[in-house]
């Protein structure tokens, strides 16, 4: 199963990067989401995956007595998921605002380098 997840991560990264390289702003945003999902899964997988043993201590015990899933990547990913919502919201509003200003979804319309700045 791990091998399949590795392939999935590779696919998420590849498609995420591909979308980032598009000129359309919306595609850029979707690429960001895909890349974020890939990174979350990567962290999750590197913490080793375990079935049917959530990191919750048994109600009778004081600490783990059996095999359990690693809580650290889970805590990391949980914050990452929530933060990514903030990021997406900000990015989407930013794109929206840019769209209103330049009336185009094409990133190339956004910035042609201004000669006088150089």
């Amino acid at each position: 199963m791990e091998l399949l997840l590795v392939i999935l991560i590779g696919v998420l990264y590849a498609t995420g990067i591909f979308m980032l390289l598009r000129r359309s702003m919306v595609k850029l945003l979707i690429g960001l989401i895909l890349l974020g999902n890939g990174a979350n899964l990567l962290i999750f997988l590197l913490g080793r995956i375990t079935k049917g043993a959530p990191p919750v201590i048994d109600s009778a015990a004081k600490f783990f007595t059996d095999v359990y899933a690693d809580p650290i990547p889970q805590a990391l990913i949980l914050t990452a998921i929530v933060i990514s919502f903030g990021l997406q919201a900000f990015a989407i509003v930013l794109l929206k605002r840019v769209y209103v200003l330049i009336n185009s979804d094409d990133l190339d319309d956004l910035n042609t380098p201004e000669e006088e700045d150089i």
């Binding site: 590795v6 392939i7 991560i9 590779g10 696919v11 998420l12 990264y13 590849a14 498609t15 995420g16 990067i17 591909f18 390289l21 890939g38 990567l42 997988l45 590197l46």
Partner: peptide, 14 residues
Amino acid sequence: LASSFGAIIALITI
């Protein structure tokens, strides 16, 4: 480019 990057990430993961 994107696929080679994905492949490299996968290999590094392994």
